[in-house]
Nucleic acid binder design. Structure first.
Lengths: 145, 145
DNA sequence: TAAAATAGTTAGCCTGGGTAACCATTTCAA
DNA sequence: TTGAAATGGTTACCCAGGCTAACTATTTTA
């Protein structure tokens, strides 16, 4: 007998691929990729962050984030902000970074608005809550393992 | 101003990585990966399918699915069923495939049940409907591009 | 103050996406 | 009815973006 939660997670996986494909297609026009985009999103909305903060927030390992950040730095979208602790590198968006984010945001907005059409704000908020909840439970599970 | 739908899709991306990480960790104990697991899931629940059907359902290209299917065949979990059309290869689970699916299912169930704890069946069904809806809209968007 | 912890990097691996080009077979239209 | 187009599948090869292991530099702590 097929359980509802099994369907739920299968559908989650099914949705991911076409979403990422289209996202990358749109980002590609600006020379960006998903992994870079989520870093821009984070820095634009939450302000400066260290590599460890970014890696932990996005659930990837430090070397993965090092590479993503390096690419964004090469593109001129990121710069270091000096801190007391000489080990850490706190990063923030450059002017170019802010303006490329805002420009790309328009393209992505058009896409996201289109595909979420017909779903009320309440439902969206409810879904966000649900996803956050699951994510927290995964973190808890990881710690217990 | 940060929009609700922007948050929604960012949270979606944020949830994907830790979920896939844990899924792969559990599957790894049985020598499997996410891409293979979703094929087992499909064949177990929906019965035999051709490569094109699988690829289209999971939104990947044919060569990607060819590779995934080949690995499952090497593991002895898949076999071809003869059809009229000599071009196509319709695949189904072998006995070993069925029993490995059922065995692994237990591990995954334990994980999925734990992390969806506290979310009612109604909410889950609602979320499934929502994700299916978005997926359809992405397909529509792709066709219009 | 020496050892442990933390921030970040480099090197090298692997999964699993993709495209291009191809073969075999089937379908369709002139 | 048959030649062209469409379809199912494969091979070869490229690339993003995950990972671990091992390292350096700095800070914290016992």
């Amino acid at each position: 007998m097929i359980q509802t939660f099994q369907k739920f997670f299968y559908q989650f996986l099914l949705l991911y691929r076409p979403f990422e494909n289209q996202l990358n297609a749109l980002l590609g026009k600006h020379g960006l990729y998903r992994a870079q985009w989520t870093v821009l999103y984070y820095l634009f909305n939450f302000g400066p962050a260290t590599l460890v903060e970014l890696a932990s927030y996005q659930s990837v390992e430090k070397p993965t984030m090092t590479r993503t950040v390096q690419r964004l730095k090469e593109l001129g979208y990121l710069e270091a902000v000096p801190t007391k602790d000489k080990r850490e590198k706190r990063m923030q968006l450059t002017e170019a970074g802010v303006s490329v984010y805002q420009e790309v945001r328009l393209t992505i907005d058009a896409f996201e608005e289109k595909i979420i059409e017909g779903i009320s704000e309440e439902e969206q908020l409810e879904a966000i809550r649900l996803m956050k909840d699951i994510q927290q439970k995964i973190t808890k599970w990881e710690m217990e393992m």
